[in-house]
């Protein structure tokens, strides 16, 4: 049996090769080569432009460890990643459950469309729309004051909550989609069986639904956590003076001072830290999943 599977997969690989080739060729050219170049840059003293002298160095990496600034920022970014992921779970998971188990037919399609909609608009447009909503005298402020009997002053713009709101809005569809897929795959008869055996709603959720949909939660969390830790656009526009994060510092190195080697080194340190976190978390997550 095992031998059969092995030969089967080998010949399968050969016939699959033409199908895989375009994707891998594209990945090699568009991702692997530039990324290797960046690794190379991160060990250089200077970009080799216009015949400038350069040498190999570890200085770009040691800069990270010698300056407390980068640690502080990295921790702030990791915290941001965790908070955004958490809010995405809180908001996205119930929505995914309703989509998968409660709604059917047309209404499901309509709600699904609303979830996907943010994906179809440009990220910058979304952020600037939030800017209009969140600022003092903005849409939220005006609307609440029009309804409420007392005067409140809402100015969330240029603050940490504004960054969280913007990022959660951008990333919650990932959580909804991944959770929806796993929740939909749960056999309804399992739920009925649990009910008939007298499980309460909370027990059902804790013992049956969450464990079975764990792969979706984990995948969604990873999909959200990694880009949020490196995000720079949302913090810069919505965060105001509190909007300095690890990602914005990397952007500064590339754009403002043209120090690509340091920018590349900082990026790879981030990549390493994220990989370590995912590796450390993987046994726990695997057990859970």
């Amino acid at each position: 049996m095992a031998g059969q599977v092995a030969t089967g997969s080998r010949s399968g690989l050969r016939s699959a090769l033409p199908l895989l080739l375009p994707a891998y060729l594209w990945l090699t050219v568009a991702i692997f080569l530039p990324l290797s170049a960046m690794v190379f840059f991160s060990f250089m003293t200077e970009l080799p432009l216009a015949g400038k002298a350069w040498a190999f160095t570890l200085a770009n990496y040691t800069t990270f460890f010698s300056q407390g600034l980068y640690w502080t920022l990295l921790l702030a970014s990791l915290r941001l990643g965790l908070e955004v992921t958490l809010w995405c779970v809180v908001i996205g998971y119930p929505a995914a459950y309703v989509l998968a188990k409660v709604l059917k037919g047309r209404s499901r399609e309509a709600i699904f469309l609303l979830v996907i909609l943010p994906f179809w608009s440009n990220g910058l447009v979304r952020i600037f729309s939030w800017a209009m909503v969140l600022r003092e005298g903005g849409i939220l402020d005006t609307a609440l004051n029009a309804v409420l009997p007392f005067k409140i002053n809402i100015d969330l713009m240029y603050s940490y909550p504004a960054v969280i709101i913007g990022l959660v809005h951008s990333y919650v569809p990932y959580m909804v989609l991944t959770c929806y897929l796993t929740l939909q795959a749960i056999d309804d008869s399992l739920i009925e069986a649990g009910r008939s055996l007298g499980a309460s709603r909370l027990q059902m959720l804790r013992r049956v639904i969450i464990p079975l949909s764990m792969p979706g939660l984990v995948a969604g969390a990873a999909l959200i956590f990694v880009p949020v830790v490196g995000s720079f656009m949302e913090p810069r526009i919505l965060g105001g003076r509190t909007g300095t994060f690890y990602g914005t510092v990397i952007e500064d190195q590339f754009v403002a001072v043209f120090n690509w080697p340091l920018g590349a080194a900082l990026s790879f340190i981030l990549l390493a830290v994220v990989l370590v976190i995912l590796a450390l978390a993987s046994p726990v997550l695997k057990r859970a999943a």
């Binding site: 300056q67 600034l69 702030a76 003076r241 300095t244 510092v249 403002a256 001072v257 120090n259």
Partner: peptide
């Protein structure tokens, strides 16, 4: 000079981080 520019950026980033 490039060295000055990098020093200025380091100072500026430090100020921005400490305000958080």
């Amino acid at each position: 000079t490039d060295a000055q520019r990098e020093a200025y950026l380091a100072l500026w980033q430090e100020l921005k981080v400490n305000v958080k």
